[in-house]
Every structure is written in structure tokens, then in C-alpha cells.
Simulated assay, not measured.
Amino acid sequence: MKLKNTLFCLLIALCLLLTGCGGTNTAGGGKDGSFHIVTSFYPMYIATLNITQGIDGVTVTNMTKPQTGCLHDYQLMTEDMKTLEKADAFVINGAGMESFLDKVIKQQKSLKVIDASKG
């Protein structure tokens, strides 16, 4: 329950930031004014979809396939990095679940990472 509340608070804060940025295209957000969120695996995807449902201009994409098993063994692929290059935010479970995260942070220094295990 604590994880769900933390994720909810993080995404609400993110959405509030989006509503305060209307008009001009500054850092973050697509050229068309959209905000693209990528999630690390399916449970984070479903939670993020539920929280952002009905918010105009926000799209959510899951990086891994729904049938992906344990993320501890997941191998980051070139396709994943291309997906993350287009992202404005990356929602992760955290708490050591995404062992590939160090590589992502090194290559995508400006990517906003939302860690659901913190807070």
C-alpha cells in the first residue's frame, strides 16, 4: 500500500508540473506539447496508466513486454534505449529491481527518473 501511495504522489506531482507548463515548449515535453512517460515493467505501466488516465497530452509506454519475468535478469536492448530517448520521464519500481538502471542513467543523463520505492 505504501508503494502505491508513493507512486501516486510522485505521478500527481508530475502531472501538476505538466499543467503549469502550458503554452511554450521548454525542457521536457514533445514538440507537440505532449509528455511521454516510459515505465520499466508491466505493473508500473498499469499503475501509471491508472494515475494519468484522462490527462490530455500524456502518453504512457511500457519498455518491457508484459510477459517479461524477473527484471533482475532483464537485458537492456537497443530498442529500449531508443524508447527511453523519446521519454520525458521514466517510472521505475526502484529498490534494486531494475539492475540495468545504471546503464540508462549514464546514457540518458537528462532523463527524469521517478523511483516509486522512494519517499
Rank of each mutant, 00 (worst) to 15 (best):
D102W: 01
Q108P: 03
K82W: 00
L71I: 05
Y45S: 07
G54K: 14
K82Q: 12
K4C: 06
G119D: 06
Y74G: 08
C15W: 00
Q107V: 04
N62E: 12
Q75E: 12
I37Q: 09
V104P: 01
S110W: 02
G20N: 10
T83L: 14
G57F: 08
G23Q: 11
L71K: 00
L17D: 11
M1P: 01
G20V: 04
G22M: 09
L18Q: 04
T24K: 14
Q67A: 10
A87H: 03
D73W: 02
T26R: 13
Q67G: 00
K2A: 09
K65M: 14
S34Y: 06
T83S: 14
I12Y: 03
G96E: 03
C9V: 02
K31M: 13
G94R: 00
A47I: 02
V104L: 03
A87P: 06
M1V: 03
T68F: 02
L71E: 10
L10D: 09
H36E: 11
N62G: 15
L3C: 00
T6K: 13
L7A: 13
G54Q: 10
K118L: 07
C70Q: 06
L84Q: 07
D32Q: 09
A47S: 12
H72S: 09
S117G: 08
Q67T: 10
H72G: 14
G94V: 03
I55W: 03
A87M: 04
V58R: 04
G96F: 02
T19E: 06
I55S: 07
G57N: 15
D88F: 04
L11M: 14
G33D: 13
D32Y: 07
S110H: 12
T24Q: 13
G69R: 00
T39I: 05
K109T: 15
T48I: 04
I114L: 15
D80I: 01
C9D: 11
L14P: 01
D80E: 01
G29R: 14
K109E: 15
K82Y: 00
S117L: 07
L71P: 02
L17Q: 11
M44H: 03
F41D: 13
G96V: 02
A89F: 06
G57I: 08
K86W: 03
A13F: 02
L111N: 10
F8S: 11
T52H: 08
V113H: 04
L76S: 09
Q53K: 15
I51C: 11
V113F: 07
K2S: 07
